[in-house]
Amino acid sequence: MSVTKFPPLLSDDDLQKYKVPLKWRDRCAFYFALYQTCLIRQSANGSVDCGHDKHAWEECENLDLIRRKQELAQVKQARKEEA
């Protein structure tokens, strides 16, 4: 699965339900919750592979990083044009 857009944000109840740490409560928390759920299933059943869920989460985090860098560059450019 290729992540091309961000999933809907999780509610506070869902963040607590899936025990998402504060540092991962961002646009990609949905994928983190899926990965954590898979890890729980994997601990109960060793034949479950969570590589796909981990990849989707990491890809989302990478896209979010790129988005934030672009926003920062736009802000810097706007400030440069104002001066």
Rank of each mutant, 00 (worst) to 15 (best):
L34K: 15
W57Q: 11
S2F: 10
Y18E: 04
L10M: 15
C28K: 12
R41A: 10
E82Q: 10
E58I: 08
D13P: 01
K69W: 00
L65K: 11
Y35L: 12
K54V: 00
H52N: 08
A73Q: 09
Y31W: 13
E81H: 03
S43M: 13
K54N: 12
K80I: 01
D13N: 13
K54S: 08
W24N: 14
K17R: 15
L63I: 04
V48L: 08
G51N: 14
M1D: 15
D12A: 12
E82I: 09
S43C: 08
D13E: 14
D53M: 09
K5L: 09
Q42S: 11
K17P: 02
Y31P: 08
S43R: 15
S47F: 07
M1W: 13
D12Q: 13
K23S: 12
F30G: 03
K54M: 09
I40P: 00
Y35G: 04
D14G: 01
R67H: 11
A83L: 06
E61R: 15
C50M: 06
S11C: 03
E82D: 02
Y35A: 04
R68P: 02
I66Y: 05
K19F: 01
K19W: 01
W57Y: 15
E58F: 03
V20E: 05
W57C: 06
Y18F: 15
D49E: 06
A33Q: 11
D26E: 12
L9A: 13
L72F: 02
A44E: 12
Q36Y: 10
K23I: 12
D53P: 00
A33N: 09
A29G: 05
D49G: 00
A33D: 07
Y31E: 13
L9H: 05
V75W: 02
R67S: 08
L63W: 01
E81R: 12
F32M: 12
Q16L: 14
D14R: 13
K54R: 15
N45W: 07
A83M: 05
C60G: 09
A83P: 00
A83Q: 04
K17V: 02
V75G: 00
F6N: 07
V20N: 08
E58A: 11
K54T: 00
L65W: 01
V48P: 05
Y31Q: 14
S43P: 03
V48H: 05
